[in-house]
Write a protein that binds this DNA or RNA. Sequence first.
DNA 1: ACAATTTATGTACAAACGTACATAATATAA
DNA 2: TTATATTATGTACGTTTGTACATAAATTGT
Lengths: 197, 197
Amino acid sequence: MENIIQDLTQKQKDFLQNLQENYGTLALPSFEQIKNDLNFKSKNSVKQYMEVLKDKKLILSFNNNLYINKDIFGAKLVASYVKAGFAAVMEDKIEKRISMDEILEINSPSTFVFKVSGDSMTDAGILDGDYVVIKKTPEARINDIVLAVIDNEFTLKTYKKDSKGYYLKPENKAYPILRPKFSLSIFGVAIGITRRI
Amino acid sequence: MENIIQDLTQKQKDFLQNLQENYGTLALPSFEQIKNDLNFKSKNSVKQYMEVLKDKKLILSFNNNLYINKDIFGAKLVASYVKAGFAAVMEDKIEKRISMDEILEINSPSTFVFKVSGDSMTDAGILDGDYVVIKKTPEARINDIVLAVIDNEFTLKTYKKDSKGYYLKPENKAYPILRPKFSLSIFGVAIGITRRI
DNA sequence: ACAATTTATGTACAAACGTACATAATATAA
DNA sequence: TTATATTATGTACGTTTGTACATAAATTGT
């Protein structure tokens, strides 16, 4: 993807960048409007650029609307094996663009997010203030991290079972395990976390 | 937002849901195409629904393209104080829809992501396999978690300084601190992490 | 059962759309 | 300098667009 952009002419690069700055990930407006926004005097100028960019798959069409190929956007996933090398080399090792919203299935109707308070899960790498992504489901497997309702109280813990039955385990030695007095149900299962530092 | 949807008629709700399922967050196609996709026989049916939904701000217009109001999409941030309550109550406590890509500034050109390997940062809640979001900048403050190049080798550590100079500190007691033999530079600063469980 | 409202269909039209074609201006290469 | 390719502008046209208006069918409330 990066290299496809390389062999554009400078004017084509500028054009593409202007599209990005003006319209981002939204659908592109009419050629007439692009003409005005990018200060051309004929919408055919726009058309000619579009032809090139469509050929190179930098502009894609959905539902008769044109979009900038979103692979151009987004954070660049650098190869995980980058443990040695030079900073200059790094940009060559870009694997692909990624979206955290996709990884965490944020746009699924069954996905809920809540903010963690407390340090009962720090040993699982879940800290106070983290966003926890929960997939709503009444079923969980043993050892899943779940958002559970235990005795009418919500809590995020690891789902466990022993001879005495199901219980919830904090991932922090300072906290005791929780056994339900009268009820334990699963709101959903943790499928990911996000932390803003 | 939720309540606005409540006082739609059932047919209007169905219509909106069909739009979501067919077009997601993309720009809506022409009324003619929607007519076909949703099996109407006149595009005026589509127009009449659109009028209502635009009035209620459930459909928005950008660049002469129509979009479903994205607040309808996305994960629902549940109030962080949800520590006690009933599952039924939970859906009422939805604060807003959020995007992890926005929180982590994924679409900024200076944002890089890489996958963590190793357990040298577990005490900071950064585990093997996590995605670390790095904002590329040559400057960092003491105690920032940084992606640094130390003696030509990339590593993710906490940026520290003492009387002997700058050094890198793993957040895991099992690892020793790293002092540069001949060079230490900052590739960028960690601004967030994402973990897929 | 009837009235009122909502939902659905049909037709007609001006404005906006993308495209084709012709041509001029500019930049690049030999 | 001259030839070639790229970039820019202009015009003309058939198609598609959203909208207005009229009307029919279905649903809802009383």
